Computed example of a mutant assay.
Amino acid sequence: MSVGRYRIEKTISRFYREIDEILDAVGVSGDEFYQDLHAFTSSNEKPTDVQQSESEEYKSTSGHAARVGCRKSELLDATQTGDITKLENAIAWIEFDGVQADLRNELFDAKSRIRNEKDIKRVHRAMIDLRPSVVSELRSYIKPPPVLHTIMLCTFILLGMTDESNLGWNEIRCLMRRQGKASLFRAITQFDRRDVHKNRCRRVLKLLDGIDFRSAVEVSEGAAIFYEWLRDMTRDVS
C-alpha cells in the first residue's frame, strides 16, 4: 500500500470515528443514520421546481421523527400563508422524504386547500368573462337545487334588482331573462359595492349562511361563479 493511500484511509477512518462519537452524544443510532444517509443520497426522486437547499432546522436534526416534525412545521407555515406555490413546495418535500403516512391528515387538508384556491381563481376568471351560456344553463333548471336558488336570489338582492327574500324560482328566471339596460350582465358590470348599504349585504350573508364554495361548485360551475362573486362583494361586511 502506498503512503498516500494509507494516509487517505487513515483520515477516512478518523472521520467515521468522529461521526460515531457525535451520534453517541446526541443519542442517535449509527445504523439509522447511515441508512437515512444512503437513502437520501441514492434516491432518484427529486422534487420539481422546489428550492433544493435544506432549511437550517432540517440540517441540524436527523432521524425519522425529526424529518416528520420539520416537514409538518413547513407545511403548516405554508398553509397559514395561503400561498399555493409554498404549499406545493412543502408537499413536494414531504413526498421526497417519504413521510406522507405520518402527515396524512395535514396533506389531505393542504391538498384540499390547493384545490379550493385553484377553483376559486378559475371562478374569478370566469366571472370577469361571464358568458351568456353560463346564465342560460342556470336558467334552464325547472326545479333547481336549494343552493342554486339561494345563490341567485342573493345575487339579485345585492344588485338591487329585488328586495324580496322569498322570491320564487320562476321570478328569478324572469330576472335572468332580462335584456338590454335591465339585464343581469349590465347590472354586474356596473355594480360598485361601495354604493351598497351594509344592511343589504348583511341580508345576503344571512341567506348564504350554511352554503360554502364546495357545495356551490358541486351544483355547477355557474353556481360557484355567482357564489364567489357574492362573497367577494360582501367580504368587508361584519
Rank of each mutant, 00 (worst) to 15 (best):
L148A: 15
K46A: 03
F191T: 04
K121F: 00
I22D: 07
F108L: 15
A90E: 00
R5C: 06
N170V: 04
I225E: 04
L159I: 02
R186L: 08
S55T: 08
D232T: 14
Q52Y: 01
A101V: 14
K143W: 03
G98S: 11
S13Y: 03
K111Q: 14
S53W: 04
R131T: 13
V28I: 14
A126S: 13
T85I: 11
E88D: 06
N89Q: 12
V134F: 08
A25H: 11
E228Q: 11
V219R: 11
C201V: 08
T61H: 15
L103H: 05
V217W: 06
S165C: 07
E228V: 12
R173F: 00
D209S: 15
L37I: 07
D97H: 13
I225N: 07
K111G: 01
N166P: 00
M161C: 06
N170F: 04
V147K: 07
D83R: 08
S55K: 02
G30M: 01
V3K: 15
D192S: 11
Y58F: 10
V134H: 07
T85D: 02
V3N: 12
E21M: 07
T234D: 06
S165L: 12
E54Q: 09
H38Q: 12
I19P: 00
T162A: 09
H38K: 13
R14L: 10
D129T: 13
Q80I: 10
V50A: 02
L175R: 09
Q179P: 07
A90S: 10
I128Y: 03
A101G: 11
S140I: 05
E171H: 13
I142T: 05
Q35M: 11
R131G: 04
S238G: 13
R214Y: 12
E88F: 00
E45N: 05
I22Y: 08
H124L: 09
W229E: 02
G168Q: 10
L153Q: 13
N105A: 14
L37N: 11
K121V: 07
G160N: 04
R5F: 02
I157H: 02
S112P: 00
E106V: 14
L230G: 06
T234A: 04
S53P: 00
R113V: 06
R186T: 08
C70N: 10
Y6E: 04
A216Q: 05
S133A: 10
L167H: 06
